[in-house]
C-alpha cells in the first residue's frame, strides 16, 4: 500500500473540502486499496503558500491549490481572475476533458507537478458594504475595499475604489469597525465567514471565477502502478462533476441564506454587469499583462469551447 499525503488550505466545513475528502475515498476505492490517501486540510501540514513547492520537491506527495496561488510562478493559471470572463457554468462542465485543460496540464508538468483533478469552486461573488448595495461603477467611488491581487486591485481602482490589503483573519473585524468599507468575496464564504453580521448590503455578481486543482509529485506519479494511475484519472473526472454540483449548490443557496439574515441582497442584472465589466476589464488586462503568447493561446482555446 502506497501512502499519498495531500495538503490543502480549505477549512474542513468548506463545500470543496468535502469534495476533496470524497475524491480521496474514491481514489482509494478505485485503486482497490493500493493507494492510502491521507488528506491534511486547513493548512495543518503545509501552508497554502508552500503547497506547490513542497509537492514539486517531494516533501509531500500531493496538494491542492487555488489557481491564484500560482501567482507569478505560472501566471497563466490566473486567467479566471479576469473580471466577468468565466461566469458561464458551461465552460466548467466541459473543462476537464478540454484542449484548454490539457494545455494547462502540460504547462504544469513542465513546471514540475502532475495535475490530477480540477475542482471548480465559484463563479458567484458578492460585493459587500454597509448601506446600499454597490451596483453602478459610481457606487464604488471613494470606498476602501479589501483587495485581492494586484491586477484585480487595478480593476477596483478603475471603479474609483481604494483597494486595501489585509490578511484574511483581519477582514471580518475590519468590516465590522469600518477600517475598510467593503469587500469582494465568494458568496458561500460571505455566509460561512458571517460577513452578514457586519455588512448589510450584498451585490451578487459573476465577477470572479476560481478553481482548486489537485496535483502530484511527478516522480511519485511515475512510480505508481497502471491501476493506481487509472484510479486517479477516473476519480479526477468524477470529482470535477461533484465540485460543479457542490459549488453550484453553494452559489445558489448563498443569496437566500444572506436574505434570511435580514440583509439587502441585490442580484446584478446583465446590464449592470456589463457596465462594471466595461470599466474593470481594461484596467485588469493592462495590469495582468496582455500579449503573453501562452495566455493568448489559452484564451483562444477557451473561445472554442
Amino acid at each position: 500500500q502506497t501512502v499519498m499525503r495531500c495538503s490543502h488550505q480549505l477549512p474542513p466545513a468548506h463545500h470543496i473540502a468535502k469534495v476533496v475528502d470524497r475524491w480521496a475515498a474514491e481514489v482509494e476505492k478505485l485503486s482497490e486499496g493500493e493507494l492510502d490517501v491521507q488528506v491534511f486540510g486547513a493548512d495543518s501540514l503545509v501552508g497554502a503558500r508552500d503547497n506547490i513547492v513542497s509537492t514539486a520537491k517531494g516533501d509531500i506527495e500531493c496538494a491542492f491549490s487555488l489557481n491564484f496561488q500560482w501567482g507569478k510562478t505560472l501566471p497563466i493559471m490566473n486567467v479566471t481572475v479576469a473580471p466577468f470572463a468565466f461566469g458561464d457554468i458551461e465552460i466548467w462542465k466541459k473543462w476537464p476533458t478540454s484542449e484548454a485543460a490539457a494545455f494547462l496540464e502540460e504547462k504544469l508538468l513542465e513546471k514540475g507537478v502532475k495535475n490530477v483533478v480540477w475542482m471548480f469552486q465559484t463563479n458567484t461573488s458578492v460585493f459587500t458594504t454597509k448601506g446600499e448595495p454597490l451596483v453602478k461603477p459610481e457606487d464604488f467611488k471613494g470606498l476602501k475595499i479589501r483587495g485581492l491581487t494586484p491586477p484585480f486591485d487595478a480593476a477596483l481602482a478603475a471603479l474609483g475604489a481604494t483597494p486595501t490589503a489585509m490578511p484574511g483573519s483581519e477582514v471580518y473585524q475590519a468590516l465590522a469597525t469600518g477600517v475598510v468599507d467593503g469587500a469582494i468575496t465568494d458568496v458561500a464564504a460571505a455566509v460561512s465567514r458571517k460577513y452578514y453580521e457586519v455588512q448589510d448590503a450584498f451585490t451578487v455578481v459573476p465577477v470572479l471565477s476560481a478553481y482548486l486543482h489537485g496535483y502530484l509529485n511527478p516522480a511519485f506519479y511515475d512510480g505508481l502502478s497502471d491501476k493506481s494511475k487509472e484510479a486517479l484519472k477516473q476519480a479526477g473526472l468524477e470529482a470535477s462533476e461533484w465540485a460543479i454540483e457542490a459549488s453550484t449548490e453553494a452559489g445558489n443557496a448563498g443569496p437566500d441564506q444572506l436574505r434570511e439574515k435580514g440583509v439587502k441582497v441585490h442580484i446584478a442584472t446583465p446590464e449592470e454587469n456589463a457596465a462594471l465589466e466595461a470599466v474593470m476589464r481594461p484596467a485588469f488586462d493592462k495590469a495582468f499583462g496582455e500579449g503573453d503568447a501562452d495566455s493568448q493561446k489559452l484564451l483562444d482555446l477557451l473561445g472554442k469551447m
Partner: peptide, 19 residues
C-alpha cells in the same frame, strides 16, 4: 538550505503585492 536550493531551481514567486 535544501528548500532554498530547490526553490531557486523551481522558480517560485510569492503571491501578493511583493512578487
Amino acid at each position: 538550505w535544501d528548500s532554498i536550493a530547490f526553490a531557486i531551481s523551481f522558480g517560485s514567486y510569492s503571491v501578493g503585492y511583493i512578487e
